[in-house]
């Protein structure tokens, strides 16, 4: 595997290999010296065309703990040099002789575009509304840590599905295992046509009451402007996960969120800070999972 462009492109077996390797890296993160010399002398570049402190920090830590030399190339879309295409930016970066390119871009398919045009290993850190594969992998890793497996689980994904790359990557990942998926949210934020292993619910309670895992998605605050939802207050009132959910959720159901979460929009503090929530565990697991992905990629022979 040269690149991790999306979960769409990888097999169940490859996912399992990544999760197993992540387990070994999680142990590394518990040591006093959390750095291993594995990729000493290799270089990674974090190419971020969209601002993202969390994902970039997580990747940077993962890279540094593998002893990679790290370059950060952050360009907010507004400051991209006019006229330079992604292709040209890529060719410039290639002349630095980097081994790994981590890319975050606002265009769906941008990661595949980069992967197709460079011999370096490419990791998608989120491309448009397409995929965010390492997020899905760390979610899977976290679920397996708590539940011991993915097969046989019922998973509800709540929120802005149509604009969420996290939702897509999770859909692809969970679909490679024997899982039942429910998308929950307002009709304006859910796709009208879904794969056959997915059901749709506009009702929060009905959608999550049988779930083993409830994944909440971040509501982009600007969705209100696009008339997708009348107000954040109304969203929280109807689809926000609040304390009353304890009365009908399964006893061992867990709550996840890719962060950063909006308290009082997707989730109440009561839930976010309860033992049901594994949100902070997801953050730690993010580093181990990303280390595993970087470690397992293999460069194309030129």
């Amino acid at each position: 595997m040269k690149d991790l462009v999306g979960i769409k492109e990888i097999s169940r077996q490859e996912i399992e290999e990544i999760l197993n390797t992540a387990r070994a890296f999680k142990e590394v993160l518990t040591r006093d010296i959390k750095k291993v010399p594995t990729l000493r002398g290799k270089t990674a570049i974090n190419l971020f065309f969209e601002p993202s402190t969390r994902t970039r920090t997580s990747f940077e830590l993962a890279e540094k703990r593998l002893s990679l030399d790290v370059l950060n190339f952050s360009v907010s879309t507004s400051s991209v040099v006019k006229g330079e295409t992604l292709y040209d930016t890529l060719k410039t970066i290639e002349s630095y002789n980097v081994d790994y390119i981590v890319i975050r871009h606002s265009a769906s398919g941008a990661a595949k575009f980069v992967a197709d045009n460079t011999p370096a290993c490419v990791i998608n850190a989120g491309d448009g509304t397409n995929e965010h594969p390492t997020q899905a992998l760390l979610d899977a890793f976290s679920i397996v840590e708590v539940k011991g497996k993915l097969d046989g689980l019922k998973i509800a994904i709540v929120g802005d599905i149509i604009h969420s790359r996290v939702a897509r990557s999770n859909l692809y990942l969970l679909s490679k295992f024997d899982t039942e998926i429910t998308f929950v949210g307002p009709p304006t934020l859910l796709p009208s046509d879904v794969p056959s292993n997915v059901s749709i619910s506009y009702d929060l309670k009905k959608g999550i009451k049988d779930a083993d895992v409830v994944m909440l998605l971040r509501i982009q605050l600007e969705r209100q402007k696009g008339a997708f939802i009348p107000s954040l207050k109304e969203y929280f009132h109807v689809w926000g996960l609040k304390g009353d959910a304890f009365s009908y959720l399964k006893k061992d159901a867990i709550v996840m969120h890719p962060g950063p979460m909006n308290r009082g929009v997707e989730i109440s503090s009561e839930i976010a800070d309860s033992p049901r929530s594994i949100i902070l565990r997801q953050v730690t697991n993010g580093i181990a999972t990303r280390m595993a992905v970087i470690y397992l990629l293999t460069r194309r022979e030129v």
Binding site: K8, S108, G109, D127, G128, T129, N130, E131, I162, R165, R168, P191, D193, V194, P195
Partner: peptide
């Protein structure tokens, strides 16, 4: 617009 556009993450 349809299942395909949803799966590709394209509007």
């Amino acid at each position: 617009e349809g299942k395909m556009s949803f799966l590709l993450g394209l509007k």
